[in-house]
Nucleic acid binder design. Structure first.
Length: 480
RNA sequence: GCACGGAUGGCAGAGUAGCUAUGCAAGGGAUUGCAGAUCCCUGGACCCGGGUGCAAAUCCCGGUCCGUGCUCCA
């Protein structure tokens, strides 16, 4: 089955055909580091992490670029507020980004270009746009002139020039800058007093918001590349502006073959965003939630769907992840190696096929998760049974490592999974004699039908973290 | 207002024409002093109104509701 992806520009799922056989270039808009990363950033990072993982597993050599827009109005605002250099603000938040994304098991991109390291390329591109009459110099900067390429308007959002003219309503009057038309957008902003700036043919200033991505994608991926991604909130104006800039500068279209956009995180049904003030930073969330539980929660819906972030979905993910981890870690303990991709167990092959079909259908992580859940359930029941065949269990371990680990990234490293299980074992042996003693007392109580005493002992054991289970073959117990 | 998405059982969330989605939760049974674990079984949904079809959750038209974008945003 071939891989199909939903392309925002054509509004349909299209078979992914790379420009160069066997290779994929992908650019995903990263963050503007003016504050610590929030859950929405994590969603974006994880979505494209999984896309890249899947492309690689499919056999593509992937060049994945994700940028930092490390100079902009908000970064300047924060730096002025704190009285520190703007780069200090940016660096601090970039560090936070890497710290939390590492915890969330996000594989690093091949490169993380920054605006401040791309200034010469940006200046060159702006110069090019001016020479080609797509941009004009004004009193307060350089602007892209929309009317020079009206056919490119609305490529991603379906809006026409007229619609925006109307829809902008009262805001249109506030243009107030050197723009000729309110829909023109800044390529270069002249420096204001006390702001960081770079020298350019148009005086000191800094890049406008959109030009950096055109310049960086060109620099790192070339004049045409396969995939451009980002959140749906960037559709307009950011990504449409990029289309204007890149295509008008390079003189061909399309520059980007496929546009992929991830959905937003909602809180109580509304988009979580910094400006709404209803956001959780990732590090705040990680104080209460295991990073892999958070990752699990964020891939529970396909990447294009909005995700409603609330305690119920976290608890749900937590219990699913708990099942996965406890089965995996126990299986690891009793298993023998097997080889990835070659499974004797028929149900594993069926699940593989379903999972692969799901991922090939626009990276449907939900379908993949369903198969993980099914396999975990089978494994748990196998571990519970008397038939704990190490080779069979080994196949489950390998399968989980291939798909839950490699593809979805929701499995901890072997080492920590083993430790998880060994901690349970050592806790078990630590308290074993005490537990046995209490259980004997309980047995005596039970024989004399002294249920209140028996239950009291069970409660006591429960407080020690021991779960008691009476079965047909006597009483068993395990550590929570 | 305009644009783009979405609306499926208690919850999450698949499914684009006919065949059990799945997981969790719930109910019933087995087991059990009770509880838990396990096993077996079960119920339950396709926003509304039209249309096309032998057949529609699935296609078409109209409507309603929700989200996002139109302003800095992943």
């Amino acid at each position: 089955m071939t891989l199909r992806v939903y392309d925002t520009r054509s509004r349909s799922k299209r078979v992914l055909t790379p420009l160069e056989e066997g290779k994929i270039g992908i650019y995903a808009c990263g963050i503007t580091p003016y504050s610590p990363s929030h859950i929405g950033h994590a969603r974006q990072a994880i979505a494209f992490d999984i896309i890249v993982r899947w492309l690689r597993k499919t056999g593509y050599e992937v060049n994945y670029i994700s940028n930092f827009t490390d100079i902009d109005d908000k970064i300047i605002a924060v730096s002025q507020e704190e009285g520190v250099d703007f780069l200090e603000v940016a660096n601090r938040n970039i560090e936070d980004y890497f710290t939390v994304m590492d915890k969330l098991n996000v594989i690093r991109a091949n490169s993380y270009p920054r605006v401040t390291e791309t200034i010469p390329e940006i200046i060159e591109m702006i110069g090019d746009l001016i020479r080609k009459n797509h941009a004009y110099v004004s009193a307060d900067g350089v602007y892209f002139e929309i009317d020079t390429a009206p056919e490119k308007y609305g490529q991603l959002t379906g809006q026409t020039l007229e619609m925006v003219r109307k829809g902008a309503g009262g805001r249109v009057a506030e243009t107030g800058s050197g723009k000729r038309d309110h829909r023109d957008f800044a390529l270069w902003k002249s420096a204001k007093e006390g702001e960081p700036s770079w020298d350019s043919p148009w005086g000191h200033g800094r890049p406008g918001w959109h030009i950096e991505c055109s310049a960086m994608s060109l620099k790192h991926l070339g004049e045409r590349f396969d995939i451009h991604g980002g959140g749906t909130d960037l559709l307009f104006p950011h990504h449409e502006a990029e289309i204007f800039q890149s295509e008008c500068c390079l003189g061909h279209d399309p520059v980007v073959q496929y546009w992929l956009h991830n959905g937003m995180i909602n809180v109580d049904g509304e988009k979580m965003s910094k400006s709404e003030g209803n956001f959780w930073t990732v590090s705040e969330a990680l104080q209460n939630v295991d990073p892999l539980v958070l990752r699990y929660a964020l891939i529970n819906a396909p990447y294009r769907q909005p995700v409603d972030f609330n305690t119920v979905m976290i608890e749900d993910s937590s219990s699913h992840y708990g099942r996965l981890l406890s089965s995996y870690s126990e299986a690891l303990h009793v298993s023998k190696e097997s080889h990835i991709g070659q499974y004797e167990i028929e149900s594993l092959n069926i699940s593989s096929e379903r999972l692969i079909n799901g991922m090939n259908d626009d990276f449907n992580t939900r379908k993949a998760l369903v198969e993980i859940q099914v396999v975990v359930k089978e494994l748990a029941s196998l571990l519970q049974s008397n038939d704990r065949d190490p080779i069979r269990i080994g196949e489950y371990v390998t399968w989980l490592e291939e798909f839950a680990g490699g593809v979805l990234g929701i499995l901890p490293p072997r080492k920590s999974a083993s430790e998880f299980y060994e901690n349970k074992l050592s806790r078990r042996s630590e308290i074993e004699s005490e537990v046995e003693r209490l259980l004997e007392m309980r047995d005596v109580a039970r024989e004399s039908k002294d249920w209140s005493k028996s239950d009291k002992i069970r409660d006591e054991l429960h407080e020690m973290g021991v779960v008691v289970e009476d079965g047909p073959e006597g009483t068993r117990w395990h550590v929570l």
